[in-house]
Design a binder for these strands. Sequence first.
DNA 1: TTTAGCACTCGGAACCAATGAGTGCTAACA
DNA 2: TGTTAGCACTCATTGGTTCCGAGTGCTAAA
Lengths: 340, 340
Amino acid sequence: MLTNRQLQILKVIVDDFILTAQPVGSRYISKKETVDFSPATIRNEMADLEEMGFLEKLHSSSGRAPSEKGYRFYVDHLLSPSTLSSREKNLIRESFGKKTLEFEQVVEKSAGILSDLTNYTSIILGPEVFETRLKQIQITPLSHEKAVAVLVTNTGHVEHRVFSTPLEIKATDLEKMVNILNERLKGVALIEVPERLNKEIFSLLKEHAEHFNDAFMYLRAALANDNSAKLYVGGKTNILMQPEFKDIDRIRSIMSMIEEEKDIASLLKTSDKGIQTMIGHENPFIALQHCSIITANYYFGNQQVGTLALLGPTRMEYNRVVTLVEELSRHMTETFREWY
Amino acid sequence: MLTNRQLQILKVIVDDFILTAQPVGSRYISKKETVDFSPATIRNEMADLEEMGFLEKLHSSSGRAPSEKGYRFYVDHLLSPSTLSSREKNLIRESFGKKTLEFEQVVEKSAGILSDLTNYTSIILGPEVFETRLKQIQITPLSHEKAVAVLVTNTGHVEHRVFSTPLEIKATDLEKMVNILNERLKGVALIEVPERLNKEIFSLLKEHAEHFNDAFMYLRAALANDNSAKLYVGGKTNILMQPEFKDIDRIRSIMSMIEEEKDIASLLKTSDKGIQTMIGHENPFIALQHCSIITANYYFGNQQVGTLALLGPTRMEYNRVVTLVEELSRHMTETFREWY
DNA sequence: TTTAGCACTCGGAACCAATGAGTGCTAACA
DNA sequence: TGTTAGCACTCATTGGTTCCGAGTGCTAAA
C-alpha cells in the first residue's frame, strides 16, 4: 500500500503533469506550499513510486510523468471532482434552458457544449436501435414515381426515406396502405419492422390491389433499417491543440478512426454503465493508445440508453471533465424525460 | 512571350514538382527523354523563367519550383486534360449506375468518389436556397404538444422540422391548416415562405379557429429558413497526407475553416460558372494560401445551381483533377435531370 | 528517518566541418 | 549567335563535438 506521503506526491505529479505536459522534478515538488519535504526525500519516494509502476521517466535524468497505471490510480483514488465553474454552469443552463423538440438538436448541442468547455473531442452515440419503436409512419407521394416515408420513433427521432413507387398507384390506394401500416406497425421495435412487413403485412396489403406488390417491394427496401446507431462528434479539431499530438501520424490515425465511426461506435457500445474511464491501452485500438475516453450513459425513458463520450489525451483534466460529462448526461436524460 | 523551349521546360518542371513535391534541377530535366538540351542551356532558360515570375527557388542553390503565377500559366495554357483511367470510370459508373432517389444520397456519394479518387478534400455546396421551391408540406402530430412538418422541395430535397403545437388543437383542424398551406405555398420559393405566411396566410388561417393563432406562431418559427446552403465534405483527413502540410498550424487553420463552413460556403458561392481554379492567394483566406480550389457547377433543372469543389495543395494534380471534377458535375447534373 | 552534498546522466542548443545537389558565370565551340 | 563544358560558389543537410542545465541516485552526516 502507498503511504500518505506517496499519495500526496503522486497527486501533485499527476495534477502538475496534466497542467503542463512537462515531466515533474523533485525540486519543483518540494517548493509547493502543500509539500514540506526536501527534494532528496521526494526523490526517494519517486523512485519507489516508479518501482511500483505509477511513474515513468522519459530518460534517466528527466523528471517523472505518470504512467497509465498512475493515471488509473489517480482516477480511482485521488480524484477530487471539481464543481462546475460559473462559466460552465451558465453555458449549460443557457443551452438547456431553451426548449428543444428534436432528439438531434439536443444531442448536437450537448456535443458542442462538451467539446467547447473541455477542448477535447466529444462523441455521442445515439440510443440503441433495437430499443427504438416506431410511433408513426406517413407516406407522401413526391412525383408519379417517388414517395417519401416519414418515420417517427418514440425517442422523438424523425427520419424520412424516399422510395420508388410503381406508376399505377393511386393516392387513395396509398392512403389505405398507410392506414394498414400504421395500424400494424405502431409500437413495433424498428428492428422488427422488416420482419413484420414480410410476415403479416404483405398478405394484408395483397388483398387490396395487385400493384401493391410492387410498391411493397420498394417500401420494404426503404424501411430496411441500417442498424447503425448514429455518431455525433463535436470539436474534431480540438485534438490538434494538444501538445502530445504534434505528430501528424498520430493525428491521422485518430482522425480517420473518428471518421470511420464503426470502431468508435462499437467501443462506446460495449462500455459499461455509469461514468467510465478508459485510459491509454485500456482500449483495444492502437490509434487511441495515447488517448483516454470518458463515457457516461444517458437514458431515454427507462431502458433505452445512449452513450456520451469525451476523447482526449491520456493527460486529461480528469477532475473537471468527469463532472462535466456526468452533468451533461444528467441534463440529457432529464430533457428526454420531460418529453413524456 | 515564352519560347517553345521555355514552355516545354516549364511544363516539365510543373509536372515533376506536382508528382514529387521536390524542387527540380537542370540536370534532372536534361535527362528526360523529351528534352534534348544540356543542363547549362536549361539553367539559362530557368533563370529567365524565374525572372518572369513563373518559377521560384527555395534558396540560392536549390532547384526550381513553380510559383503561383507558374501554376496559373500551366493551368491556363499547358494543361493536357487527362482521360479517365478505367479505375476511375468504373468507380463512377458503378456509383451512378444504381438508381438514387434522394438529393443527399447523390451528393454524398459524389463527394465520396471525388475525395477517394483524388486524395484531396471534396466539398459540395447544395443548390442555392433562393431558387428552391416548396413542392409539398405535410404536418403530422407527434404528441399532444409536438408536431412535425415535412417539407419537400422541387430539388428532391426532403426535410422535416419539429415544432410545438398548442394543446387545444385538433387533428381535423390541423388537416385544414395543412390544406391551406399546401394550396397557398406550393411552388413558392423557400425563401419567400416566411413572408407569405405573414401576409396572406395568417389572415386566412385566422378565419378558421382562434388557436391557430398560437399554432401559427410555432409553425412560422419552424419554417423560418436558415438560408445557409448545406455543405457536404468528403475526405477531410486527406489533407493530412500532403507533405506540404506537415505543419500542424497550417492543418489546424484549414481544418477549422472547413469545420466553420461559413467562409467556405461564401467562397464557393461567389465562384464563377464553369470549371474554375483558384490557385494559392487567388482566394482571400490566409488559411488557404497554400491551397488550390477547383470548382464546377452542377445544375438542377435549368436555373438552380450548386457547386462542386475540390480542395488540395497548390501542388495539385490539375490535369487529372480537372477532368474528374468536370465529369462528376456532369454526372450529377444528368442524374438530377432524369428526375423530371 | 530525513537531508545535504556530490557525481553522474542525458536531452537540447550551439557550433563546426564535410558532403552533395544545384546554381551562375565565363569562355570555348559549332 | 546560340549552345555547352567547366568551374567557382551557395546553401541545406548530416554528423560529430562541446557545453549547459535540469534532474537523478547514492552516500554520509544530522
